[in-house]
């Protein structure tokens, strides 16, 4: 019960194609776990299995103490999820989005209202509170989407490339929010394409062709490859023989 997530030989096949090939790992509670890999390496598929969006073909996985096969409903109540695509409704106002997502996670109305006020103030979005989400800048939207994903205070929050297309300043602020959330005890499971972000994670796994090629702290990983940056580690792993050029 010390792990937020445990996966054991978790596998997903689509016909002949094995998208995720018997991956095994553990994520500690309160940890920021970076889930890296090239496009098509199986990150999203693995994440979908952990969030109950997709049923594994084989293997076992426990999320927040529940089995992904038998108790997906329990898992869904205890996780937050921010999808690769934009997860808010653009034709709803900021406050309406907060109210909607708070509502479907079962937060009482009064509390949702309080949370909405607090959130809008914390994000410094009071000028946007009653405007449609389509009218606010992307950086704000992503921060709002993240805040909404953790509105119901999940045990684990899954972030699928949350900072894609966001400017460096906002990315920085975004990671500050992630840290804060992790400090409060929520486990953060995050996929990213930015190698500088990988350095921020407590531990990182790198997927190559459906398998986990490496799993360690960024420091240890860099040391074992004898390189300076995570970027080099990533290139070594995803392009065997390459990386020096």
């Amino acid at each position: 019960m010390n792990h937020a997530i445990t996966a054991n030989n978790l596998t997903k096949r689509f016909g002949d194609f094995t998208a995720v090939d018997a991956i095994s790992f553990e994520v500690d509670k309160g940890e920021i776990f970076g889930f890296l890999g090239a496009n098509g390496a199986g990150k999203t598929t693995a994440m979908r299995m952990l969030t109950g969006l997709s049923r594994p073909t084989e293997g076992e996985a426990m999320v927040a103490g529940y089995d992904v096969y038998r108790e997906p409903e329990q898992i869904k109540r205890r996780i937050g999820y921010m999808s690769q695509k934009f997860s808010l409704y653009e034709d709803l106002k900021v406050r309406e989005n907060i109210r909607f997502y708070g509502g479907i996670y079962g937060l009482p109305r009064k509390q949702v209202r309080q949370e909405a006020d607090r959130l809008i103030e914390e994000l410094g979005m009071s000028e946007f509170a009653n405007s449609l989400v389509s009218g606010i800048p992307l950086g704000w939207r992503q921060k709002l989407a993240f805040s909404i994903a953790i509105l119901h205070r999940p045990a684990i929050v899954f972030l699928d490339e949350p900072t894609g297309g966001v400017d460096p300043v906002t990315r920085r602020q975004f990671w500050e929010m992630i840290y804060k959330t992790a400090n409060e005890g929520t486990t953060v499971f995050v996929t990213t394409h930015y190698m500088d972000e990988a350095e921020y994670c407590n531990r990182v796994s790198i997927m190559v062709e459906g398998r986990i090629a490496a799993l360690d702290t960024p420091q240890a990983m860099k040391a074992s490859f004898g390189v300076e940056t995570m970027n080099e580690v990533f290139l070594r792993l995803t392009r065997p023989g390459g990386g020096n050029t």
Binding site: K29, R77, T186
Partner: peptide, 21 residues
């Protein structure tokens, strides 16, 4: 005094879980 949710035992979730709506 704050006890993070994930440190609680499994059976505590149902108490923690906000007003069953």
């Amino acid at each position: 005094s704050y006890v993070p949710m994930c440190l609680k035992r499994k059976q505590d979730y149902k108490f923690f879980k906000i007003n069953p709506m």
